[in-house]
Amino acid sequence: MSDAVVRLRGVDKVFGTGADKTPALQKIDLEIPKGAFVSLIGPSGCGKSTLLRLIGDLTQPSTGIVEVNGKTAHRARLDRDYGMVFQAPVLFDWRTVQGNVELPLEVSAKNGSARADRAKAMLALVELTGFERRYPWQLSGGMQQRVAIARALSIEPAILLMDEPFGALDEMTRERLNLELLRIWQQTGTTIVFVTHSIPEAVFLSTHVAVMSARPGRIIELIPVDLPQPRNDLTREDERYFGFITRVRERLRGHEMGRPGAAEVAAS
């Protein structure tokens, strides 16, 4: 694939040294086409967050190559190709909502008025117009996470990296934000890599689901999810939607049963 935004080849990641050596990721090969929405799913501790951090150059591979936009991941980070959203919103209490969204623009030395306009546009995109002058601690958890998304998108990143962004939210808020995220994805055309431990969420959102094995994490299968776009509440009632959920679930479970000892690792 020539239009791959992210390309990983033979990536291993080992934590620690000597006797404490723990292999976290093994022989990861992955290509993510431009505009795709790829979910990473697997048992806890399988290294899906580590894989995301490798793509974002927040940690480096032990062996193998990570390329983003045809550059090294490091170069891509310096070029500000990334938008990051974590499980916690990580907003700064001392900045207003507007100030938080402007933060990455300030760091990349965008000038004042363009910065304010861009932040306002991003807040409109996540439907938080009117909350510019509030402080993060005056907002609900779901609203805080929307601010974090607006902030990540403010620098027009080539790729949006999301690490269980809705993991701490209640089911209702999560479903609403899923729909909002899909709308934002379609409006911006940004490539998204999304870590989750929810199978329905992965299937609902993604164009591809990467199913990972327990530690050391490997990609068992990259399942293309060709449910019709744009997706909406009806998608959740589609028979094929349930078909994909079953398929992902069987792939996760089948792999654990196929490898003696793997289930215990996953449970721990």
């Binding site: 974002g56 927040l58 980070r77 310096l78 070029d79 500000r80 990334y82 938008g83 990051m84 974590f86 916690a88 990580v90 700064f92 001392w94 933060l103 990455p104 300030e106 760091v107 990349s108 620098i155 990296l161």
Partner: peptide
Amino acid sequence: VDQASLELMRSYAASELAIFAKVRIP
């Protein structure tokens, strides 16, 4: 300083000076 705040700044390729002014001092 919260580790996630520092990672966030690093993901923007923020300089040490910017991290100091925008995260550490506040």
